[in-house]
Simulated assay, not measured.
Amino acid sequence: MKLTISGYSTALFATWYLLEELGILMDAGDGLTAALLQKSRKINYVFISHADRDHLTGLLQLNQLNAREGFPVICYPRDSKSFPAMEEFLKKFDPNTTGVQWKAVAPGDEIWVKEDLVVVPIRNEHVTTDKNIIRSLSYKVMQVKQKVKPELAGLPASALKQIIMDKGKESTTMEVRTNLVGYSGDTPVADLQRWDQSGILIHEATFLASEGDVKMIAHKNKHSKLEEVMEMISQISVQQLILGHFSSRYSAEQIDRSIKDLCGKYAINIPVFRLLPGLTVKDILSGDPVNK
């Protein structure tokens, strides 16, 4: 499936990504409706990774322009109290947004956005909490298909038809899920296999420096470093990589040079795209990868 992905992602300021054909918005930072204009009306589902303001303040204008009965559906980490407060405020501030659905989600939930498309929340490590408290999430967008069971694949059509008549169609098929898009949200790399077999992975890479060069503050939320992301990619199967959420302390030249150097170091040959600080990119995958 060809996807048109547009976005903006600068650490501290704003992050959002539109998966246009799917009607899905990942995070909702400031400025998204000004950049998307009428395309913002294609958004049916919004998946928020966490309650940092640079990931949610675009919801006010999005809902004002896009609210209708039952949509958009805004999914957020189950134990984040910011979203119920925001819902209550918006319903008072703008009664026209009362049709919007606010949905608390957690790992184990499945949000069906189309008959063959489900979004699965994944706990991540951005916010340090007890394991039962969910305040930060990543997401997988999975395409779901029914395929004939391998043991029945060689049977003639007449035989399959007979089995269906005798035992029902469900006895002949199995569900197959394909990870179309993985979205990390803000998080350090903790599980090297989490994004294996992703068609497209959108991953944050706030810092270019190694761990020793970045001052990490224990009580602050945690982010990825570019090298740990690229090392992870070298060990799993991902078809295309989009990097974002870079700190504005880095220049475009620093970012691109670091990506190219790490692609060489880890022998990464898949297309790698990036969102530079301060720039909105429309149809990211139609551009040239950094490592072409």
Results as ranks from 00 to 15, higher is better:
residue 103 K to M: 08
residue 95 P to G: 08
residue 95 P to K: 05
residue 92 K to Q: 10
residue 99 G to E: 04
residue 104 A to C: 08
residue 120 V to K: 07
residue 98 T to Q: 13
residue 86 M to E: 00
residue 86 M to Q: 02
residue 93 F to L: 13
residue 89 F to Q: 02
residue 84 P to S: 04
residue 105 V to C: 12
residue 112 W to P: 00
residue 84 P to E: 04
residue 120 V to L: 14
residue 87 E to W: 06
residue 100 V to W: 02
residue 81 K to L: 11
residue 100 V to T: 14
residue 97 T to D: 07
residue 113 V to I: 15
residue 99 G to N: 05
residue 119 V to L: 13
residue 106 A to T: 09
residue 116 D to G: 04
residue 90 L to V: 05
residue 94 D to S: 13
residue 110 E to I: 05
residue 94 D to N: 09
residue 116 D to C: 03
residue 103 K to T: 11
residue 107 P to R: 07
residue 112 W to A: 14
residue 96 N to R: 12
residue 118 V to F: 06
residue 112 W to D: 02
residue 111 I to A: 06
residue 88 E to W: 10
residue 91 K to Y: 13
residue 111 I to K: 00
residue 80 S to L: 13
residue 82 S to R: 09
residue 108 G to L: 05
residue 119 V to W: 00
residue 92 K to S: 13
residue 86 M to R: 00
residue 101 Q to D: 02
residue 106 A to F: 12
residue 100 V to P: 01
residue 88 E to I: 10
residue 103 K to I: 10
residue 104 A to H: 04
residue 103 K to G: 06
residue 102 W to V: 06
residue 108 G to V: 06
residue 101 Q to S: 08
residue 84 P to Q: 03
residue 80 S to G: 11
residue 93 F to D: 12
residue 112 W to I: 06
residue 100 V to L: 07
residue 103 K to P: 02
residue 96 N to S: 14
residue 105 V to R: 05
residue 99 G to A: 11
residue 113 V to A: 12
residue 100 V to E: 02
residue 115 E to I: 07
residue 107 P to I: 09
residue 82 S to H: 12
residue 81 K to E: 14
residue 99 G to D: 04
residue 113 V to E: 00
residue 85 A to I: 15
residue 99 G to W: 11
residue 83 F to Y: 14
residue 95 P to V: 07
residue 94 D to E: 12
residue 89 F to R: 04
residue 90 L to M: 15
residue 119 V to H: 01
residue 88 E to C: 12
residue 96 N to M: 08
residue 85 A to K: 12
residue 114 K to S: 12
residue 103 K to D: 06
residue 101 Q to F: 06
residue 115 E to N: 15
residue 101 Q to T: 03
residue 118 V to A: 11
residue 118 V to G: 00
residue 109 D to R: 02
residue 116 D to A: 08
residue 96 N to T: 09
residue 102 W to G: 02
residue 100 V to N: 03
residue 102 W to A: 07
residue 94 D to V: 09
residue 83 F to V: 10
residue 111 I to W: 03
residue 94 D to F: 08
residue 100 V to M: 04
residue 113 V to M: 01
residue 108 G to P: 00
residue 99 G to M: 05
residue 118 V to Q: 00
residue 91 K to P: 02
residue 108 G to E: 00
residue 89 F to S: 06
residue 89 F to W: 13
residue 81 K to C: 12
residue 119 V to F: 03
residue 91 K to M: 12
residue 108 G to W: 00
residue 84 P to M: 08
residue 117 L to A: 05
residue 82 S to C: 10
residue 98 T to D: 09
residue 87 E to T: 03
residue 113 V to L: 03
residue 103 K to E: 11
residue 89 F to C: 08
residue 113 V to G: 01
residue 80 S to P: 11
